[in-house]
Structure formats: structure tokens, C-alpha cells
Amino acid sequence: MATIISRRQVLADNWQLLKRAADGSIEIPSDGDVIVPLSTWLEQRDALVKRTGQLGVWLEGSDDPALLVADLEHFALIAVHFQQFTDGRGYSIARLLRARYGWQRELRAVGDVLRDQLFYLSSCGFNTFALRADQNVQAAMTAFEDFSEAYQGSVERPQPLFRRRSLIQHEDTQKAAI
């Protein structure tokens, strides 16, 4: 069974990520939890909503998340596929889904997802991670602690540092006083 990192734990993964075959066809099992490509959702939405099992959709970096805005209620999960970890479009997609389109359920990074990008991915709103097969999942858990602060606002902590700085320093002084 494949594993994913979810809420900073390693869990078994029940989702099946479906991809199109070389001829463009795609086989959708009748039950079980599946993640379908955006184009499949747009073509077969009526059939997909009638399935048993949970439904997810995945986007490529070039896809526009705005296309999903009216459909969000149908999904338990949205995934963003990284063809290469150096392709940063997925970070903006995550920010848009979280901050603009109000997506609050699972947002998963899939594809070329490596230990050294987890901190930024998480800041942009991803909360589950299907790491590339060669990655050491247990060792990767420390990546979330690479930095204890950030100048920018994140999805978990929307206020940028400059709006929190005086509070933090106030807390530090209080701790020191105790």
C-alpha cells in the first residue's frame, strides 16, 4: 500500500490517482476512491457524481483552478501534479484554491514531490503529500520544521510576520519575566 504524509503523519493511502492512457482513454473503476484528471471531470461529470466511493480531481501546473470553482462540493480531495519539482505553478494554484476559492478539504501534492520542498508546499496550503517513490518518507517529516518562522503569511497563519512581530516580542518578554 502506498503511503502519504497527512497532517505530519505517515498514513496508508486509499486513493487511486487515475491517468489517461497514451491514446487518451481512461478507465474508471466503479467503486473506490479515485482522483481523476481535470479534463475527465469536465467531460464526464454526470457519470462521476453518480459513482460510489469518494471523488477527487487533479490539476496540472498549466490547468486553471478557476474551472472548479462551481464544482468544489463534489470533491473530497484536489491534487496538484508536479511534473518537475522545479515547476512552481502548483504553488500559485494552491494559494488560489485556499485563499480565493475557499477550498478547505484535502489539498494534495503529487508527482515529483521531494523532501526539500515540503516546507514551502505546506505554507502554500498543501496538507497531504504523495512523495516521489525514491524518497524516505520518515526522514522527510523533519522538513516541516526547517524554519520556525516566515516573513510571509501562509495558509495556516495568514498574518505576515510584520503584523505579528510586536505580539511575538511581547510574548517573549512575558516568558522571560516568568
Binding site: G88, Y91, S92, Y120, C124, A150
Partner: peptide
């Protein structure tokens, strides 16, 4: 400088 340092969304630009 502070805003751009470790900006999580813009670390892998084109």
C-alpha cells in the same frame, strides 16, 4: 528583502 526571503509561492519561478 524580508517579503521575498523564502517566499513560498515564488521559489520556483520560470
Amino acid at each position: 528583502r524580508q517579503w521575498s526571503t523564502f517566499h513560498p509561492e515564488f521559489a520556483y519561478l520560470p
